[in-house]
Amino acid sequence: MEREATWEGGGSPFAIGVKPLGMWLFVVSDALTFSALLVTYTYCRLSNPDWPTPFHFSPSILFSTAMTFLLLSSSFTMALAVRAMKNGRRRQTVRMMAATIAMGLGFVALHLNEWFHLMRVGNITLTDNPWHQPLFGATFFGLTGLHMVHVCAGSIYLAIVAAGVARGKFGAEDVETSGLYWHFVDLVWMFIFPMVYLMSVAR
């Protein structure tokens, strides 16, 4: 006799709240966007033997390594914030989130500095560069610019949530949800840094 399949997932099959679940779905869809952009960049890079290699050790690789360290450290403090909030320690949560935001803003400051250095010293713009490969500027500034927008948006989002936590308006689920977004921004950079910067170091 054939058994009928029955639903046994209950009301919450993933055992997480609707807010983190919504953020997970957003994260996966945003990952598709960044994947497509990264593969586009890598395709252009591999298909072109004259692809620009403008990233000198100082400042580009030095700065981008420091930026990577900042993002990784900000993810660590964000994870600590989520943990603190789950344990009911609001003040520590706000402190950890403030540290996360500060490192996010530090990332943006270093990134802008590195961009302007490439423009001023390396003569690299959105449409031209000394290698005469216009696709480099388009893909490089497009990809890293979209990521920087995510970091800025994340900093604002975390600031709003931290203020809400301080006032007692937001709970552990809100901090966890904002943390998922922040870790995703960090995760994307784990691919941009090697694929874009390290693959094109100046020798």
Partner: peptide
């Protein structure tokens, strides 16, 4: 590692 531990 990020997904497993930081995003738990």
């Amino acid at each position: 590692m990020i997904i497993g531990f930081f995003m738990h």
